[in-house]
């Protein structure tokens, strides 16, 4: 459907529904449930320069309307990823966006460089905000506008592909961080990543996940995601991919109206593996019923009270 097409950086997406990194594998895992080409884009699990075993178990815990995770970026490392996973991307029409994480700023540049020549990789989503890893300087990059700016420049310098910077809501002013990424050359912004939290087992008095603190996702974080999207929409000109708690097409619409150009489904994929395509169908119906001509007509169309 033509009305649903959106442009993110250099990419024209068939519709504004993406998958959130770390909740969709590399897409193959969902082949029994849906046609990947029906999605706007597939954002694959986060990768790092070196292979990583991830954190000890338990790695997840359920919380009211959400879940905590501290997977710890378990992944085979970029080289194996390129050799084993990327060739599969060529089977599909849907663009694949690779999510990258680093422990030092220079790793982001190296990752972008390695992916630059890989056919089938349409874009790079830069995770500067994963709360589950111990960064060398004890702080996640996403909290520091200067670090975000340097990392964005570094990735930009090493790739012509679409660059998306993924932000954390856990900052004193997300507008400042968003502006830093935009000024440094980001094509788009993804928000939000998970929010750090804790859950306790009262029988054992242990934290419910082994690494104590994990990232909260799911419906519980939706209002925070929406708030961030609204604030950033009013600050930058580049498109925003909104995420956090999207399970239904109504959730997706909320994000679009708050200022997102596209949305991503994360935890929703665990609750219903077909939720992404159901959301696409829901949007189609809504667009027809309400005679909406394009996504831009909805993006940021929040009607304010004027009293």
């Amino acid at each position: 459907m033509e009305q649903l097409k959106v442009k993110i950086g250099k990419l024209i997406l068939e519709n504004p529904v993406l998958t959130a990194s770390g909740t969709f594998g590399t897409g193959e895992e969902f082949e029994d449930f849906l046609d990947l080409d029906k999605l706007g884009a597939v954002v694959v699990k986060g990768i790092t320069l070196k292979p990583r075993d991830g954190n000890p178990l338990p790695r997840i815990a359920e919380t009211p309307s959400g879940m905590l995770n501290a997977i710890g970026l378990q992944n085979p490392g970029v080289d194996i990823f390129i050799k084993e996973k990327c060739p599969v991307f060529l089977k599909y029409k849907v663009p694949f966006i690779v999510n990258i994480s680093g422990y030092e700023e220079k790793e982001y540049g190296l990752l972008a460089k390695k992916l630059e020549t890989v056919a089938g990789v349409a874009g790079i989503e830069v995770n500067v905000s994963c709360p589950n890893v111990n960064y060398r300087h004890g702080m996640i990059f996403a909290k520091d506008p200067l670090a975000v700016s340097r990392i964005t420049r570094l990735v930009r310098k090493n790739t012509k592909k679409t660059v998306i910077i993924k932000l954390s809501p856990e900052v004193s002013d997300i507008k400042v961080i968003a502006r830093a990424a935009e000024e440094a050359g980001a094509d788009a912004l993804s928000l939000i990543n998970t929010i750090s939290g804790l859950a306790v087992d009262v029988e054992t008095r242990r934290p419910k996940i082994a690494s104590i603190i994990g990232g909260l996702s799911g419906p519980a974080v939706k209002p925070i995601g929406l708030r961030c999207v609204w604030q950033v929409y009013n600050t930058v000109k580049i498109p925003i991919i909104g995420m956090g708690g999207i399970c239904t097409y109504e959730d997706a619409l909320e994000y679009l109206i708050a200022g997102a150009a596209a949305v991503a489904v994360g935890t929703g994929n665990f609750l219903d593996p077909q939720s992404t395509v159901k959301i696409v169908d829901g949007l189609k119906k809504y667009f027809i019923l309400n005679k909406i001509k394009n996504v831009a007509q909805l993006t940021g169309s929040l009607r304010l009270f004027n009293n």
Binding site: G22, T23, K45
Partner: peptide, 8 residues
């Protein structure tokens, strides 16, 4: 997830 994507 039960389908191999969350790595929990």
């Amino acid at each position: 997830c039960g389908i191999g994507v969350c790595l929990s």
